[in-house]
Design a protein around this nucleic acid. Structure first.
Lengths: 213, 213
DNA sequence: ATTATTATTTATCGATTGATCAACAAAGAG
DNA sequence: CTCTTTGTTGATCAATCGATAAATAATAAT
């Protein structure tokens, strides 16, 4: 008898449920996934989606917000700049926590779907990542090695490229797992630790000269 | 007057033209791109596509062949194993040539579209890459450092993971450029040279012990 | 208990999409 | 020049998709 009664939910709750399921749904099928199929997964009818979101694009925009904005942790910026902790430990902690968020089925696939569709979303996100993480990170490295601040001597292409390399190594783990469907045979954290170590031992070669006066 | 006469081409030629344009078209729009739009780019009518390919999926399958099978160069395997050339030079030459092929708009995007759609294509391709390149590469490194052959001592997860890291760094350049639409500020070859150097200087730490009796 | 509000469903529209079939036209065979 | 072959097009089908409007039913208000 109690198979399933019709649900009549509070609008805020319903909207949240739809948004959450949309994240999972579009991550799986891409943004060309059909609203009817999404509705079926939600056990509601398709027109009801349009009661809560004016269009499919609006729903997709909400998915972006939910994942790429909503999952950013401001505490990460503090981790990087907390000079009471050794630099390597800071990097490891940051990348471990960051990896925990982006190395998920939803994050990786949605980011790639968004890129292929191309609105400026990815470039915009990565610009933010550069400002909030990459640049702070290089500044800390400069300080560690007794080099001038990035305020006095702008970040070089090579420095940023080294950071990109580290970022790529981690991100690609997610690509292998969630896009290529290849099981990872290794512990992610240990890879991160190793990559951070190699990164730090290699970066001094591209740092600007010590004396610049 | 000579605006455009109706073309009546030889079937083999027409099929080739369609296949080539399909590569470009699906790389841009993904596999959900419409056959009518593809036909318009070819300046033919949409039903003509079905004279040469029984279905859209068959055309897509042809695109896979064209790009992922057709662009592989057997000479790459020779480059890696040519012991008359120093190891680092071999790696640099291989990765420069390989990058020249895969770091293109069509290759990168089609590979990603295929991954997200997921047939086993990507895993299959990467399995081939592992066998034809990665494993040979590790074997050469083992030899260079006086370690046992991979026939005697199987490749370790860490060794492969190091190669993945190098691969990721290069592949990600293409992702940034062709999926995120971010202009690369650096010369690709110089990045490859640097990555290969870092790779080689780091790999000995994960190589198996010298004495294994 | 009756009414008002609104969350949800049913029915449907208009546009799009992969695919099919008969008609047309360009080239070669005789 | 006529006939045959076949590359190409025009017309159209059936299914699918985002979106809209009216009908229904659950909850709150009086």
């Amino acid at each position: 008898m109690p198979i399933r009664e019709q649900q009549r939910l509070d609008p805020v709750e319903r909207e949240g449920i739809i948004a959450r399921e949309a994240v999972s749904f579009f991550a799986e099928h891409g943004f060309e996934g059909q609203t009817r199929e999404l509705a079926k997964r939600l056990q509601i009818t398709q027109p009801l989606l349009y009661r809560y979101f004016p269009s499919k694009d609006a729903l997709i925009e909400r998915v972006y917000q939910e994942v790429f904005v909503g999952r950013w942790r401001p505490s990460w910026e503090k981790i990087i700049t907390d000079r009471s902790v050794p630099l390597e430990a800071r990097l490891i902690q940051f990348y471990r926590e960051y990896a925990e968020v982006i190395l998920t089925y939803e994050w990786i696939r949605l980011f790639m779907f968004a890129g292929l569709k191309n609105l400026g979303l990815n470039a915009r996100y990565l610009k933010m990542l550069r400002e909030r993480a990459f640049e702070k990170l290089v500044e800390e490295i400069r300080l560690e090695y007794g080099r001038p601040s990035i305020r006095d001597l702008p970040i070089t292409v090579l420095e940023i490229e080294m950071v990109w390399g580290l970022h790529a190594a981690i991100f690609y783990l997610g690509v292998r797992k969630f896009i290529y469907s290849m099981p990872l045979e290794t512990d992610v954290n240990s890879i991160i630790d190793a990559k951070v170590a190699t990164f730090l031992s290699g970066i001094h070669t591209v740092l600007p000269a010590k004396e610049t006066v």
